[in-house]
Write a protein that binds this DNA or RNA. Structure first.
Ligand SMILES: NC(=O)c1ccc[n+]([C@@H]2O[C@H](COP(=O)([O-])OP(=O)(O)OC[C@H]3O[C@@H](n4cnc5c(N)ncnc54)[C@H](O)[C@@H]3O)[C@@H](O)[C@H]2O)c1
Ligand SMILES: NC(=O)c1ccc[n+]([C@@H]2O[C@H](COP(=O)([O-])OP(=O)(O)OC[C@H]3O[C@@H](n4cnc5c(N)ncnc54)[C@H](O)[C@@H]3O)[C@@H](O)[C@H]2O)c1
Lengths: 256, 256
DNA sequence: CGCGATTTGTGCACGTCTTCACAAGCGCCT
DNA sequence: AGGCGCTTGTGAAGACGTGCACAAATCGCG
């Protein structure tokens, strides 16, 4: 189609990136759009309307358009968005043009699953190192990678630039590991241990906590139960849940 | 301490619960407070100030007080909150007074890790069934539970009331599994597969996607890099990141 | 060449969430 | 009994996020 001069495009090296500072809510949705776009590309679509893409990503179409407008992406009115171009743009903004190296610390129950997960590679990341403190685990080979002792972290960090550290140790060890990661220059951490990490300014921590997710679901379960129990009148089944019930940033009732 | 008559207390059966409809943001933080409170209780604290608890949970103290005020919790001015009482209240609101049964579908790489995870039991849940479609996996015993075929889901659901379904299958199978869960009456789903599920109204879906978390971190990594690259003046190290950088609902820079 | 169908980009209004700042309440000490 | 220091609970303001609704832009077709 008409070749647009999109700002901060991947191809143009050299120039200042000029990253627009996106709203956090938008940043959190971009990966979802990206996944949907890859699916669409695989299915042979060359363009997609905001309506179609928003359905595939499970969000409101107006929200999607606003999100995309923030990153200066140009769709074509009357047509939609160029799938390949949009993928390129989003990957650029998310910093996925370089395959980022991930260090995984704690190769236990969960760590094993993560180490064997192919979703890392297919979505822009590369496990660069597996680390554990247990001597009996060190030396084990998983998916072509050998588990090394966590004290070798500084050595690992000099071998290659670690972009992200993943903590899958017990909570009691998580803070120490975080400190070690920070010490070797890691500024982004994904924490699976159920605890609060304290890190210096400039270091980002995201947390995934299974139990929290379950407890949030439990709350809604509890609430739904208390709602259906209340109507003292007849006792009709659950119909027309009040509007405000929808989960936070989660999909609900997309409509079959 | 003085025995308060707190509304909707766990002990009092019978009476209408009168669940206040909490802001979603608050609901999402309650589990974090609960975890922090359990830690404090184990450490021997009988009371805790909003300042202390908020530090342990990694949030702003004003926010914590407002959250707790929403659920009508009574602290004591000049003293703080009674740890045991607060645990009881939060567990009640989250619906954790009954140990909820979880059905785990997809006992592969990730499913195995989840099945062997003791954080379920310790935080109010009980794995009631392990299900898989692969005949070679059916019959395997994990942690005292035998893997059953996913088609037995209806039977499982009649044996005991499944409160929450966890999907740990490949994305391609997730929608089908969700439909099966909904068909047997499950109204809360935790989805680990990277895809959008469509479910009827009244069913809550929460999603955990590792790659999304990593990509959000990647964005900030990218942004930090472009910021330190910009200052054409001298080139001092990264200091004083602009205020708006903090991650969404995640902790950052708690201060060492 | 012009027109209608289609779809983007966005102004605006509304709701939710966060944070400050402080009055009211409580317990302890004198 | 009274005062003092500490802590909660909350009003108000502002930041942020959402979704409607529509003007502007583009394409395809007659
Ligand atoms: N297993 C799950 O499904 C699951 C789910 C959610 C969260 N989690 C959390 O993830 C974390 C790991 O869970 P898990 O089940 O894999 O536990 P695990 O005990 O099986 O594995 C922990 C691993 O960390 C290693 N380790 C301990 N201290 C270390 C240190 N200082 N440095 C490096 N490695 C160290 C141990 O040697 C072990 O291999 C826990 O915090 C758990 O709460 C696990
Ligand atoms: N492994 C990880 O660390 C990880 C991390 C994040 C997300 N995920 C996601 O979790 C899901 C599972 O990952 P995995 O690594 O465990 O994959 P896996 O292939 O090891 O396991 C999938 C399991 O699901 C079973 N299954 C397939 N279709 C089914 C059906 N219709 N009903 C019931 N069971 C069925 C398979 O037999 C297999 O045992 C994937 O969607 C993956 O993207 C995995």
């Amino acid at each position: 189609m008409s070749q647009h001069r999109h700002p901060g495009a991947p191809g143009r090296a050299g120039a200042v990136p000029a990253l627009p500072d996106l709203p956090e809510a938008t940043v959190a949705r971009l990966p979802e759009y990206l996944r949907a776009l890859h699916n669409l590309a695989d299915a042979g679509h060359e363009t997609i309307s905001s309506e179609g893409l928003s359905a595939a990503a499970g969000v409101n179409s107006a929200k999607l358009r606003k999100d995309l407008s923030h990153l200066g992406s140009y769709g074509t009115r009357g047509v939609g968005y160029d799938v390949a171009l949009l993928i390129e743009q989003i990957e650029y903004v998310l910093g996925l043009t370089q395959r980022r190296a991930v260090a995984l610390v704690g190769v236990g129950n969960l760590g094993h699953a993560l180490a064997g997960y192919d979703g890392f590679a297919s979505r822009g990341f590369r496990i660069a190192a597996l680390l554990d403190a247990d001597p009996s685990r060190v030396g084990e080979e998983i998916n072509g990678l050998v588990v090394r002792h966590v004290d070798e972290l500084p050595a690992v960090a000099t071998e290659e630039s670690i972009a992200i550290g993943v903590i899958a140790t017990p909570a009691a060890a998580a803070q120490r590991v975080a400190d070690q990661l920070v010490a070797v220059g890691v500024t982004s951490i994904l924490n699976f241990a159920p605890c609060v990490l304290s890190v210096p300014e400039g270091v980002d921590v995201r947390k995934v906590d299974l139990a929290i997710e379950l407890q949030i679901l439990s709350f809604h379960e509890h609430r739904k139960a208390s709602l259906t129990a209340l109507p003292a009148t007849g006792g009709s089944a659950l119909t027309a849940l009040p509007g405000g019930l929808a989960a936070t940033d989660t999909q609900e009732a997309i409509g079959t």
